[in-house]
């Protein structure tokens, strides 16, 4: 479905973010992309839909060479790629429905979009995906009224309503608590299975990645240093990706404890901050 051939990206300041990446993602496969901060995970998925222009190499989506497309062609190709973001990237002041329908912008003209007169078929699609992500009760709420997990589900619905062939998912759980993180990952993986969607999921929580994805690709300094099933991710592989560290403890337990501690700390902080803010006002 998606094929990268010798993909490289060098930023204007000389930073080499990606260095000759070759990768093939077949239809229906969910790939977890892990690696330290700055390894090029975000750049990689943004090169696929050319939010970031690749410097070298080719990208194929099915038979279409994305790297050779002009503006109009790129717009059409982007409709086939749904993107889900780290901090949801919803338009905060629009309603849930408007946010979901924005996934159909590639299919409708400007004035239809401006006056929110979407074809009934698009409205049907929007309701179907909202039902799938269990947000039917929140259709008319503004995006900034929702909780983190609900917002990310709106983000998923916006990507799905495009009826894409592939999902590009950038740190979907980075701003969510551990429980919601799992629910969101489970939802993404289930939907990919239902619709036979390919997906690339950037994720820095290794344990979470292992739990849900079928294949893990490890990136370090813009190169693929690991590519295999989650089970084969051993301390040696983690060292290759992240560098030297004591990986012997079972990661799952360690991470969970850390998450709980983190959550407790931020809960406490919220309690401290609220009166301070009230005072300041």
């Amino acid at each position: 479905m998606l094929r990268l051939e010798g993909l490289s990206k060098r930023y204007a300041n000389g930073d080499r973010a990606l260095d000759h990446i070759d990768l093939h993602v077949p239809a229906g496969q969910v790939v977890g992309l892990i690696g330290p901060s700055g390894a090029g995970k975000s750049t990689l998925i943004r090169c696929v839909n050319r939010l970031v222009e690749p410097s070298e190499g080719k990208i194929f989506l099915g038979d279409v060479e994305l790297t050779a497309l002009g503006r109009a062609g790129l717009r059409q190709a982007r409709r086939r790629m749904g993107m889900i973001f780290q901090e949801y990237a919803l338009v905060e002041r629009l309603s849930v429905m408007e946010n979901v329908l924005s996934g159909r912008l590639g299919y409708v003209g400007f004035w239809r979009a401006w006056f929110r007169r979407f074809p009934q078929a698009d409205i049907d699609r929007a309701f179907a995906v909202l039902d799938r992500v269990s947000l039917m009760d929140h259709v008319d709420k503004r995006a900034d009224e929702l909780s983190g997990g609900q917002r990310q589900r709106v983000g998923i619905a916006r990507a799905l309503v495009q009826e894409p062939d592939i999902l590009l998912v950038d740190e979907p759980t980075a701003s969510l608590d551990p429980k919601t993180s799992r629910q969101i990952m489970r939802l993404i993986v289930e939907i990919c299975a239902e619709r036979n969607l390919a997906a690339i999921v950037n994720i820095h929580d290794v344990a979470l990645a292992q739990m849900f994805v079928q294949r893990i690709v490890g990136l370090r300094a813009g190169r693929v240093v690991f590519d295999g099933p989650p089970e084969s991710l051993d301390p040696a592989a983690l060292t290759a990706i992240y560098g030297e560290e004591d990986w012997s403890k079972t990661m799952t337990r360690e991470e969970e404890a850390e998450d709980r501690a983190h959550e407790a700390a931020s809960e406490q902080l919220r309690g401290v901050r609220a009166p301070l803010i009230a005072e300041a006002l």
């Binding site: 939010l51 993107m83 973001f85 408007e98 924005s102 912008l105 400007f110 979009a113």
Partner: peptide, 23 residues
């Protein structure tokens, strides 16, 4: 980020303006 998200759906320039910037 909101602008990036809207243009990633395949929206045109004017549509991105209307959906991501105007609100």
């Amino acid at each position: 980020k909101q602008v990036e998200a809207i243009s990633a759906t395949g929206a045109s320039g004017p549509q991105t303006l209307a959906y991501a910037i105007v609100p």
